[in-house]
């Protein structure tokens, strides 16, 4: 697989390590009343779709950036990638 790094272009997936579902960016609020149950779901449950999946990859043998990669889990086709920091910052702005 080649990952379309937003800054560095096509890079071999071997340069990356994999974390999983991009929803791991959405950490629950620790002070919410249902925090314990929310954290249990956050840590253990995954959507795991067959098809388009947004997931976190870390460019370890590279620029050490976290990417949100959109990939088809049935064909392994990489459909796009963006810097996870931009994704996270955009969400923070939305929630404010």
């Amino acid at each position: 697989m080649l990952i379309t790094h937003p800054l560095l272009g096509l890079r071999d997936a071997q340069e990356f390590t994999y974390l999983g579902d991009a929803r791991l960016i959405d950490r629950p609020a620790p002070s919410a009343p249902d925090a314990e149950a929310a954290f249990c779901d956050y840590v253990f449950l995954r959507d795991n779709p067959a098809g388009v999946h947004r997931e976190l990859w870390y460019h370890e043998h590279g620029d050490r950036s976290w990417l949100v990669v959109t990939r088809d889990t049935v064909t392994h086709e990489v459909l796009g990638a963006e810097l996870a920091r931009n994704v996270a910052l955009a969400r923070t702005r939305c929630s404010k």
Binding site: Q14, H61, G62
Partner: peptide, 10 residues
């Protein structure tokens, strides 16, 4: 210039 893997070494 780039960082990459070379025989598993970064």
């Amino acid at each position: 210039a780039t960082r990459t893997g070379l025989e598993h070494m970064s």
